[in-house]
């Protein structure tokens, strides 16, 4: 069986790759595409460290076949910052909202998707939105605060 050819868009750039039918998107991102910012913490969709966006919606890239990316828009942590860091990235650094940093790419991808949908989330909403992103270092306190403060800053800037 030959490999599948997939044409997709990653972080706004057209991208092609070859994959096996049973390879996950995460395997392809981390392997042939060299996008190792998405992490594999479990491979079963329980930790969220591999979170990417699929047409703007967050998904676990370990639970998506690479072949399913055909014709879709994929976003990864590598595409989050432009010339400058995204406000969430800056706030995480200012507020010490990461320790070891392995969960951070996934948390940031999920938090960004939240703020795009809900610019003024409550603490409850942030906590439940991010429930699929395990962090073992921080106890979540600073992560939640950083997301809420970023939201407030972005609302201020938009005004």
């Amino acid at each position: 069986m030959s490999k599948l050819h997939v044409s997709t868009t990653i972080n706004g750039e057209p991208q092609e790759f070859l994959c096996d039918a049973d390879q996950s998107l995460l395997d392809i991102l981390r392997g042939p595409l060299g996008l190792t910012g998405s992490k594999e913490g479990c491979g079963t969709g329980d930790c969220g460290a591999c979170t990417v966006t699929l047409n703007g919606r967050i998904v676990c890239s370990c639970l998506m076949l690479a072949a399913e990316a055909e014709g879709q828009q994929i976003g990864t942590i590598e595409g989050m910052a432009g010339e400058e860091l995204h406000p969430l990235q800056t706030k995480f650094l200012e507020m010490a909202a990461l320790q070891c940093g392995i969960c951070t790419p996934g948390v940031l991808m999920a938090a960004k998707a939240l703020l795009e949908r809900n610019p003024d989330p409550t603490e409850h909403e942030v906590r439940f939105w991010l429930a699929g992103n395990l962090c073992r270092c921080t106890g979540y306190d600073k992560i939640i605060r950083a997301v809420m403060e970023t939201a407030a800053d972005m609302r201020g800037a938009a005004r």
């Binding site: 910012g37 990235q89 200012e94 940093g101």
Partner: peptide, 21 residues
């Protein structure tokens, strides 16, 4: 003081290289 960590930017952009990377 709560300074910005030296390895911070790499960790929020996905560039930091962990064991499997």
């Amino acid at each position: 003081k709560n300074t910005i960590r030296p390895d911070g930017a790499d960790k929020v952009t996905g560039r930091a290289a962990y064991a499997a990377d």
